[in-house]
C-alpha cells in the first residue's frame, strides 16, 4: 500500500481487526452494558489525530462533540481508506464500526453497501440523542460523498 499515509495504514489494520473480532461479538451481545463497554473501547485501538489533523477542513459539521474524518483514495489499487477521530467515545466507536465495513473497498464494492444500515447496531442507535443522530447522519453523508456515491 505504498502511497498511503502511516495513519491510514495503522487505522486500516485496526479496522480489519474490529471487523473480524469486535463486530461479530457486538452484533450478538444483548446486554447494553457489555455492548457499550466494547463500543467505548473500540476507539482506543486506532491512532488519535494529532492536533494538526484536527483541522477545520476535516471537521464534520453537526456533531455536538467534535469529529474529524479523513479520506484517501489509493490510485494504484483503486481502494478507499478512511481515518476518524472524535472527542466522544460513542461516536468514535460507532463510526469505526461503519468504517470497518467500508475501508479498503473499491468503487464497485462500495456501490453495493447499504449505507443507511452502517450504524444500525441494535439497541444503540435508537437511544442516541437527536443531535448525535444528526452527527452520525452528517458522517454518513460525507462518507458517501467521499466514496463518490450519490446522496
Amino acid at each position: 500500500m505504498t502511497g498511503l499515509t502511516l495513519l491510514m495504514v495503522d487505522t486500516d489494520q485496526t479496522l480489519q481487526q474490529i471487523k473480524q473480532q469486535q463486530l461479530p461479538i457486538l452484533i450478538q451481545t444483548t446486554d447494553w452494558q457489555s455492548k457499550y463497554r466494547i463500543l467505548m473501547q473500540l476507539g482506543k485501538g486506532v491512532p488519535a489525530f494529532t492536533t494538526d489533523l484536527q483541522r477545520d477542513e476535516f471537521l464534520i459539521a453537526g456533531c455536538d462533540s467534535k469529529a474529524w474524518l479523513l479520506h484517501e483514495y489509493h490510485q494504484q489499487s483503486g481502494r478507499h481508506y478512511w481515518a476518524f477521530d472524535s472527542e466522544a467515545r460513542i461516536i468514535k466507536g460507532l463510526v469505526l464500526l461503519a468504517l470497518c465495513q467500508l475501508n479498503g473497498l473499491t468503487n464497485t464494492e462500495l456501490v453495493q453497501i447499504n449505507f443507511s444500515q452502517l450504524f444500525a447496531l441494535p439497541g444503540v442507535q435508537q437511544n442516541l440523542s437527536p443531535s448525535r443522530q444528526n452527527g452520525l447522519h452528517a458522517v454518513l453523508k460525507k462518507l458517501s460523498q467521499q466514496a463518490g456515491l450519490p446522496g
Binding site: 457499550y36 462533540s65 466522544a88 467515545r89 460513542i90 442516541l128 448525535r132
Partner: peptide
C-alpha cells in the same frame, strides 16, 4: 477524562 456527551448517552441508556 471523558466527554460530557458520552456520559449523557450512558445515562440516557
Amino acid at each position: 477524562g471523558e466527554h460530557h456527551s458520552d456520559v449523557a448517552a450512558l445515562l440516557n441508556q
